[in-house]
C-alpha cells in the first residue's frame, strides 16, 4: 500500500484529540432539544396567536375607551 502522509496526519490528529467528541454530541443534543421545544411552542400556540394578539389589543384599548367615555360625561 502506498504511503499517504495526509492520511497519517489525520490519524495522528484523531489520536491526539483530547475529547472523543462526546461533549460536542451532548451540546448538539441540548441544542436540538431546545430547537424542538421552541418548535413545539410555536406549533401549539401558533394557530391561536392572532386571537391572543387580538385579546391583547382589545385589552389595551379598553381603558382608553373608558377614559374617553369618562371625560365626555364630564
Amino acid at each position: 500500500m502506498k504511503k499517504n502522509s495526509f492520511k497519517e496526519l489525520e490519524s495522528m490528529i484523531i489520536r491526539d484529540r483530547k475529547d472523543d467528541g462526546t461533549s460536542i454530541k451532548e451540546q448538539i443534543q441540548t441544542q436540538v432539544g431546545l430547537f424542538r421545544l421552541i418548535g413545539d411552542i410555536i406549533e401549539l400556540y401558533g394557530p391561536n396567536m392572532p386571537k391572543v394578539l387580538q385579546g391583547f389589543i382589545s385589552k389595551s384599548n379598553a381603558p382608553a375607551l373608558d377614559h374617553d367615555a369618562h371625560s365626555s360625561t364630564e
Binding site: 496526519l9 489525520e10 490528529i13 484523531i14 484529540r17 483530547k18 475529547d19 467528541g21 460536542i24 454530541k25 451540546q27 448538539i28 441544542q31
Partner: peptide, 28 residues
C-alpha cells in the same frame, strides 16, 4: 464523521479549541 471533520478543522485552523468549536458549529 466527527473525527474526520475534527481532523480537517484541526489541520486547517490554528488551535485545537478552534477546531472543537468549528466541529460543533459544522454539525449544527
Amino acid at each position: 464523521y466527527n473525527n474526520k471533520v475534527y481532523a480537517k478543522c484541526a489541520a486547517m485552523l490554528k488551535t485545537e479549541s478552534w477546531a472543537e468549536d468549528a466541529t460543533q458549529e459544522i454539525f449544527i
